[in-house]
């Protein structure tokens, strides 16, 4: 797959509620992601990382805050001006059919429930939804896609295993395999390493890097572990807790240079040491 794709987020605001009860999580989000890149979305907990990823994947509608001025509605102006939109290769994602959406983005949620009685093969096969027949039987093309995906994550020997018998690390890999079997241009993962031990975290990250670089996909994942992100990613999308701008994106080096990382947390006595690439107490 040597096609190059690009995701562009323009002037996105994350929040919920209307009028007086509106709560803005983050505004002025402008970002791009291209094929072949591993991007980490970093931010403190509760700052809207999941919301951003879900909005990108059309699980949440685009938030358009309405100001409570008498009778008129206007979109809250943020750092830039212009309409909020999310584009895939220049085309808005809104209004695409399910089939078209699934060809562009695959979403791996943070905590997938294991289903007893569902085999790894069947679980990965579910993501072939638009390619299989009316009852979901996998054709030979689908079977190949499933098997290749499992081979990529190193689980082809467990194709008939019951999902409920897998370890956390293995199950996370099956979830990634399912997204791979979808054969989409981009894979978006919500905290994929949050519940994994160190070895599995390392393996998962290696895998995501491989998928982005060797399979030429866009890989975007959220994490609250900054050090981990800095070590393995090409680009960082950072949601700061304080200061302006709230949302910063760039290559790993740019982000470190800009000092934006210091604004990641609003705790005054913690500082980011760019030499050691770690946080320290002042």
């Amino acid at each position: 797959m040597t096609e190059v794709h690009k995701i562009e987020i323009k002037n996105l605001t994350l929040g919920f509620g209307k009028g007086r009860k509106a709560r803005i999580l983050c505004s002025g989000i402008n970002a791009t992601a291209c094929s072949g890149q591993v991007i980490a979305l970093v931010g403190a907990n509760g700052k809207g990382k999941s919301t951003l990823l879900k909005t990108l994947c059309s699980l949440l509608p685009l938030y358009r805050p309405l100001l409570p001025d008498a009778g008129r509605t206007s979109v809250a102006a943020s750092a830039g001006s212009g309409a909020t939109e999310i584009l895939f290769d220049g085309e808005p994602l809104a209004g695409l059919s399910g089939n078209e959406l699934s060809a562009r983005l695959a979403y791996v949620p943070s905590r997938l429930e294991r289903v007893e009685g569902l085999s790894v093969h069947d679980m990965v096969g579910i993501n072939r939804y638009y390619k299989t027949n009316w009852v979901g039987t996998l054709g030979s093309v689908d079977e190949d896609a499933v098997l290749n995906a499992l081979k990529l994550v190193g689980l082809d020997s467990m194709v008939d295993a019951d999902c409920s018998t897998l370890s956390d690390g293995e199950f996370q890999r099956v979830a990634i395999a399912a997204a791979l079997a979808q054969e989409s241009a981009a894979i978006v993962l919500d905290e994929p390493t949050a519940f994994l031990d160190i070895a599995n975290k390392f393996n998962a990250t290696q895998l995501l890097s491989y998928i982005a670089h060797q399979q030429n996909k866009i890989v975007l994942f959220s994490t609250h572990d900054l050090q981990h992100a800095l070590r393995c990613c090409d680009r960082i999308w950072l949601m700061a807790e304080e200061g302006e701008p709230q949302f910063v994106e760039g290559s790993t080096a740019e982000i470190i240079e800009s000092g934006a990382i210091n604004r990641l947390f609003s705790t005054p006595d913690i500082r980011f040491n760019s030499q050691l690439c770690t946080f320290e107490r002042i």
């Binding site: 994947c57 059309s58 699980l59 695409l96 059919s97 399910g98 089939n99 078209e100 959406l101 699934s102 695959a106 979403y107 949620p109 997938l112 429930e113 579910i126 993501n127 939804y129 638009y130 979808q182």
Partner: peptide, 9 residues
């Protein structure tokens, strides 16, 4: 899960 179904479009 319903979110998973939604994420598949």
């Amino acid at each position: 899960g319903e979110n998973y179904a939604k994420s598949l479009g």
